[in-house]
Computed example of a mutant assay.
Amino acid sequence: MHTLTCKNIVRKMGDDFSLGPINLEIHAGTITAVIGNNGAGKTTFFQAMSGDYPGEGETKVHGHNVHSIAGKAALSYVPQTFPEVLPFRLQKLRDLHANHDDTWRDDRFQAYARQFDLPLRKRISKLSVGMQRKAVLALQLSRDTSLLLLDEPFAGLDMEGQTQLEKILISKMEDDPDGSIVFATHIADEVQRLADYIVIMKNGKTQEPMEKDILAQQFKRIWLAKSVTGVEEAPGIREVEGVPPQILTSDAEATEKWLAERDVQIMKRERLSLHESLPLLLRDEETNEV
């Protein structure tokens, strides 16, 4: 079952940038990290998924168009910036949700307000950047929805706030096994701690979702007993350095098969951390786009 389906999403941003076309399906019960360098199009993509940015294509949440009442009621969205809420006091925004939002859970909001130590009667514009983000997170997390779209949700949070949010997101998934979370980030630690799937975004396009655990198995550093002619052309090879060589591969099984066919002895192998493998993916020139 899919919580979120994006079909032929396209957004034009003047003459310099365009998003898509993007086709993407997010499975229920999963957390997906959208990874990309600055300018890759993550924020525009999240705006498109949430229905905030008009354009071509269709986004559905549990089968409902994102622009429909049912679609809007099924998702919560925390953008990277939120100037529209800054003039308001948090208490006023809470009152608006409580009176007009059928998905609102006031018990949940009060718990988040206490946990984040949020001042309810102070204008959000007067809060620090981190507290502003906590305020918006508290509002959106208090809506009883099956899909969370979070654009750089940890940005600006202190260490305690990051830990609190991480626990909240994990708890939400435990309480709602049919729900999904999609978050944008460029921080490997966030991906390691939370994500089930990774979507790489480059130049306004997304690649196929990859299971984080499978990715960890594919990327390895291998130490060889001797130099091998043509090893740079072996399948999966990303880097070769040193004598005897160390190699980095994104397809360990294919690389090791190639080496075995040439009777090359492997002295040592180890998996790459996401800190090492994600930059390799982001600078990859292949066009495995959807």
Rank of each mutant, 00 (worst) to 15 (best):
S142M: 09
D175G: 06
L139N: 09
Y112Q: 02
A111Y: 01
T145F: 10
L137K: 03
D189Q: 14
K134M: 12
E174W: 04
D106F: 02
D189G: 01
R133P: 07
N203P: 00
Y112S: 05
G156Y: 08
Q132I: 12
F154H: 02
G161T: 06
Q110K: 03
W104G: 08
A184N: 11
S180V: 04
I124E: 06
V136S: 08
Q207P: 00
I198Y: 01
D151S: 10
T163R: 14
D189H: 11
Q110N: 14
E160I: 07
V136L: 02
I200P: 01
L147G: 07
L139F: 01
K172W: 11
Q162V: 15
R121V: 01
D117M: 07
D102Y: 09
S142V: 08
Y112D: 05
A195Y: 05
F183C: 09
L165Y: 12
R108V: 09
Y197F: 10
I198T: 12
L148P: 04
K134W: 06
F109H: 04
K134N: 08
E160G: 15
Q140H: 03
L148H: 10
V129K: 15
L169S: 08
D189S: 14
P153R: 11
I198S: 04
K122D: 12
D176W: 02
S128I: 04
I170K: 15
L118N: 03
N203F: 13
K202D: 15
Q115C: 13
K126H: 15
D144S: 10
M131C: 01
D189A: 13
F116K: 10
R114F: 09
S171L: 11
M159Q: 14
A184H: 11
E190C: 05
F116Q: 10
S125K: 10
I181C: 02
M201L: 09
L139S: 01
Q192D: 15
S128C: 07
G130D: 11
S171H: 15
G130Y: 03
A188G: 08
D102M: 08
D144F: 02
Q115R: 14
G161W: 06
V129G: 15
D106L: 07
L169Y: 14
K172E: 08
M159S: 12
V191S: 05
Q132S: 03
D189Y: 11
Q192E: 13
I198E: 02
M201W: 00
S125Q: 07
T145V: 15
R105S: 14
T145I: 03
G156E: 02
